[in-house]
């Protein structure tokens, strides 16, 4: 078995729960949807762990995550939401309203999220998996069930679109 295979659901939840939540949040821009999705993914992981075949654990996990997300979108019969949430920053990046520079960087974060939500799904997913989650191209290919060349192309075009949106 590859050494990166966690042994138990608890361990997966502990080590990957936060990544799954961040993935979902960056794709939906909505904390409630992201929390629901993270919970659904962990449920599926719990059910699926027994039948997990040794291989790329990351690819397997993110495929589940991606499918859960797409199922959710289909079920709700709507496009992934583009609503911007109230800013929920990480602990070390407290939102303090007065200083200009802090405000600027916060707005920057919102701008990036907004630009991200403007990307077509395939491109958004590719850049989030690469730059937010830190997956390799091979892992993204496994998760998205596309060839590595497609991953390369999606990431490239996704970044170019993002750059234009951020102008």
């Amino acid at each position: 078995m590859p050494e990166d295979v966690p042994l138990s659901w608890e361990e997966v939840a502990r080590t990957h729960g936060r990544k799954i939540y961040n993935f979902a949040y960056r794709l939906t821009g909505n904390p409630d949807d992201a929390a629901d999705l993270a919970q659904e993914v962990l449920l599926r992981v719990r059910r699926g762990l027994a039948s997990y075949q040794p291989g790329s654990f990351e690819g397997w996990l993110w495929r589940i995550t991606r499918n859960a997300f797409l199922d959710d979108v289909r079920r709700k019969n709507r496009r992934p939401t583009s609503a911007l949430p109230d800013e929920l920053d990480r602990f070390a990046a407290i939102s303090t309203p007065s200083p200009d520079d802090v405000l600027a960087s916060l707005r920057l974060g919102e701008d990036i999220q907004k630009a991200l939500l403007g990307l077509p799904y395939d491109f958004r997913e590719a850049v989030v998996m690469c730059d937010v989650i830190g997956l390799s191209y091979d892992e993204i290919a496994l998760a998205s069930a596309v060839p590595v060349g497609t991953v390369r192309s999606r990431i490239h075009r996704g970044r170019k679109m993002l750059r234009e949106a951020l102008l």
Binding site: D86, L88, D89, F91, I94, S95, T96, P97
Partner: peptide
């Protein structure tokens, strides 16, 4: 002066 968003802290 500045009671701020407590959500930012655990």
């Amino acid at each position: 002066a500045g009671v701020v968003d407590a959500d930012a802290f655990p």
